[in-house]
Write a protein that binds this DNA or RNA. Structure first.
Lengths: 383, 383
DNA sequence: CTTCCTTAGTTTCCTTTGGAAAAGTATGGT
DNA sequence: ACCATACTTTTCCAAAGGAAACTAAGGAAG
C-alpha cells in the first residue's frame, strides 16, 4: 500500500505525526481538527501497513480517564537517497522517512560531463545502499538530486546550472535509468528549505525564509507550507540584491551582496586587507578573532551587506523567521552582531519582529535536503 | 441565501465565472475540472438565488449539437463600498460584485483625529448610497476600508499608520457601528492587489506583484491566488530596498528607492536640477518632455532605482508578472525605458522573463481595492 | 470492593459531496 | 423524418468525514 491512495485525512494525520512527534490519537484529532472517529479510521490502515506504530503511554499521564496510547511515524518504513551535485563533488545521504541520515558519502567529480556525473551518482547511490544495511529490507523508495541553478522539477530537467555549465539536461530521467530507482530533482536551496520546513527550524511556521551563505548566497522561501518556486524556476536569488557594495560581482553588476559576503568574497577581501595573497578563510577567521582590525572590518562589511539583504527579504515577504545557514559556522560570531544591527535598522516597522536564527549547516545537510524533498512527495502528494 | 453555505464546488464555479466572464456550463466544467453534472447541480441554487444568470447563446456557435447557454455572474446581486483613507482625504466608491464602480466620491479630511475620520467615512458611505440608487434594492453588503500602514485584518485594527499617526485603532469596529454595515479593513496596497488578482491584470496568474508609485512606493504580492500578508502585517515594503541612492530617505536610511523615485522625491530633485524651488510635478514632466537634460536625468535616476527594486522583487519571488502602477501616468514614458533596461540587467537568469506591465491607476482605483477586498470575503470564504 | 466519573478510542450510522453514466434536449445536416 | 452531435439534467453511487452511541481503562468516592 502506498500513502497516496489513502484518504486526504490520512496525509493530514501522517504529516502531523511526522512534524510533532509521537502524539495520542485524541491529540492528533485536536491538532488536525478531525473528529476522533476519523482519526481512528484513518490510523488503522496506516498501522497495519507499518507507516505508523503504537508506542506506550505518554510521559505525562492524565490523572483521570482511560490512559492514552501514543502513535508515531515509523521512520524506517521508507528510505530515500539525497544527492547534492556541486561543481566538483557529490554529497550523498541515505535517510529514513524523517530525513535522518543512515549513511553519508562524499565523492570528488573527475569531470563535469553529464555522463560522468550521472555515473558517479549511480555509484554513490550504490555505495550508500550497501553501507546502510538496514535499508535493504525496504529498499530505497526514491532519489532526490539537488543542484544549484534553474531546475524544472515537473519535467525533471536542469534548465541551467552555472557551476556545471549544463543546459537543459534531463537529469531525473538519466539518474532514474542509471539507478533503476525513481528520481526527482530540485534546486538545492529549495530542497533544503523543504527539509527545514518539515524537519528543521521551519517546522510549523506559516512562513519562513532560509538564507544560505557559502560560495553563493541563496534563499529559500516557504509560505503557507509551500516552498515558492518562482514562475520561471527562479526564486530566492538574494545573492544579487543591490546593497551598494563597491566591489564588482561575478554577475557583472556592482553592489551585489555576493560580492561582499560570499565566502569567496570574504577571503579575497581579507587577502587584500592583510596583504597576504595566500590567506585562507580559516586563517582570516583566526586573524579576525585575534583582533586584526582590517580583517575584522571585512567581516563587518559582510555582516552589513547580509543585514541589508535579510531586511529586504523581511520587508518584502514578512516571514515569521529567517534561518541563516552556511558552511562557515566558526565565523558567524564575527558578523552576527553586525547582521542583527543592520537588519534592525533597515527592517520596516513590525518586520523587525521577524526572528533571525543562525543554524550550522554541515556538509551532508545539503544532501539531506534531497532526501527530504523526495520524502515529501510521498507524504504530501501534489499539495 | 449566502454564498458561504453552498458546497465548495459552488465557490469554484462562481469564481470561474467572475474571472472568465460568461461561459457555458460545459466550459465551466472543463475549466474547473468538475463533472458536467456537478456544474448543473451547483449552478441551480446560484441561479434561483440570483447570484448568476443565464444569458443567450455564445457568440461563436458550434456547427453541431445542442446549443449552449451562457451563464454569468449577476454583478448587481451585491454591492460594496470601498473607502481609501489617506492623510488628507477619503476616496470612496460604491461598486458591484465585479468591483465595477456605480458611484465615486472624494472628501477632504479636516483633521486626522480618529473620531473625525470615522464620521467622515460614515457620511461618505451615506452619500455613495444615495448617489447609487440601484444599490438601494439590495443594500450594501459590506464596507472595505483601506489605509496605508500596518493593518491587522483579523482583529480589524490599524496597528500603525504613519500618515495619520494612528496606533492600534480598532477602525473596523468603529466604522461598523457608525454605519451599521459590516466593515473590513486592509492595507491599501494589499487590497489593490486583491482587486488586480480578481478583476485586473493579475487575473488567472499563479503569481504576480503589484508595485505602486506615488507618495510612497508599495508592493503587493500574490502567490497561488493568495495575497501575501506577512507574519506581522508587514509585506511588500519595497520602498526602502537599498538601491544605493545618495539621498537620505524619510526612514532615516540612505539609498532607499523611495528617496529617489517617489513623486515627492522626483519633484524635489527636479527643483534642485532646474533651480526653481516652486516647480511642481506637472511642470517637471513638461520640462523633461521638452528635453531639459537635468530634469530628464532625475527621471532616469528614478527609473534606475525602480528597475533595481523590480529586479529585487523578481529575483526573490519570481512572479509571472509585475504590474507597475501609480498616479503619474503622464510621466511613465519618461522612465519606462530606464526601468526596463535596469530590470533586464539585474534580473537573474529566467527571472528576466517576468513581464512588466504598466497600468494607469486612477484615483478611485484605490477605493475600488477596498470594494474588491470586501467582495472577496463573500465569494472566496476563508481562502 | 463496588460504583461512578472521566478521558481515550471504536463503531455505527448518516450527511454531504461530487463523479459516472445514462437519459433528455436542442439544433443543423442529410 | 431521422441522424449526428454536444449541451444539460437526472439518477445512482462511492468516498469521506462528522455525530453520537458505545466500549475501554483507570482513579476517586463511598
Amino acid at each position: 500500500m502506498t500513502l497516496a491512495d489513502q484518504p486526504p485525512a490520512a496525509a493530514l494525520v501522517f504529516q502531523t505525526l511526522l512534524v510533532h512527534g509521537p502524539l495520542t490519537r485524541a491529540e492528533v484529532g485536536r491538532r488536525t481538527g478531525l473528529s476522533p472517529g476519523a482519526v481512528t479510521k484513518v490510523a488503522t490502515p496506516l498501522l497495519t501497513d507499518g507507516w505508523i506504530t503504537e508506542l506506550g503511554r505518554p510521559a505525562v499521564e492524565r490523572a483521570y480517564g482511560r490512559p492514552a496510547t501514543l502513535i508515531a511515524v515509523r521512520a524506517e518504513r521508507a528510505h530515500f537517497v539525497g544527492v547534492k551535485v556541486t561543481g566538483d563533488e557529490l554529497i550523498g545521504v541515505l535517510a529514513d522517512l524523517t530525513a535522518q541520515p543512515l549513511a553519508t558519502g562524499r565523492v570528488a567529480l573527475a569531470s563535469r560531463d553529464v555522463g560522468t556525473v550521472v555515473l558517479a551518482i549511480a555509484r554513490l547511490v550504490g555505495e550508500l545502499r550497501a553501507e546502510a544495511g538496514a535499508a535493504r529490507k525496504s529498499g530505497v523508495h526514491s532519489i532526490g538530486v539537488t543542484i544549484s541553478g534553474e531546475v524544472d522539477g515537473q519535467t525533471g530537467t536542469v534548465q541551467y546550472s552555472p557551476f556545471l555549465n549544463w543546459r537543459r539536461v534531463p537529469l531525473a530521467q538519466l539518474v532514474e535509468t542509471a539507478t533503476g530507482t525513481p528520481t526527482l530533482i530540485e534546486n538545492d536551496v529549495r530542497a533544503l528549505t523543504v527539509a527545514e520546513q518539515w524537519f528543521g527550524a521551519g517546522v510549523g511556521l506559516p512562513s519562513f525564509a532560509l538564507v544560505t551563505v557559502g560560495a553563493g548566497i541563496g534563499c529559500g522561501i516557504s509560505i503557507g507550507g509551500r516552498v515558492v518556486s518562482g514562475a520561471h524556476g527562479v526564486s530566492g536569488e538574494v545573492g544579487h540584491l543591490p546593497v551598494g557594495a563597491a566591489r564588482v560581482c561575478t554577475c557583472g553588476n556592482t553592489g551585489c551582496v555576493e560580492a561582499v559576503a560570499s565566502t569567496h568574497a570574504i577571503t579575497e577581501q581579507a587577502r587584500q586587507a592583510s596583504g597576504n595573497p595566500e590567506l585562507t578563510m580559516d586563517e582570516a577567521v583566526r586573524f579576525a578573532h585575534a583582533g586584526d582590525p582590517a580583517v575584522r572590518a571585512v567581516f563587518s562589511h559582510a555582516g552589513h551587506a547580509m543585514g541589508l539583504a535579510l531586511a529586504s527579504v523581511a520587508n518584502l515577504i514578512g516571514p515569521d523567521r529567517i534561518i541563516i545557514s552556511g558552511e562557515g559556522v566558526a565565523s558567524y560570531d564575527l558578523y552576527e552582531d553586525q547582521i542583527r544591527q543592520t537588519f534592525g535598522a533597515h527592517a520596516f516597522g513590525a518586520a523587525a519582529e521577524c526572528d533571525l536564527v543562525v543554524r550550522p549547516l554541515p556538509f551532508e545537510e545539503w544532501a539531506r535536503g534531497g532526501a527530504a524533498f523526495a520524502a515529501q512527495r510521498l507524504f504530501a502528494p501534489t499539495k
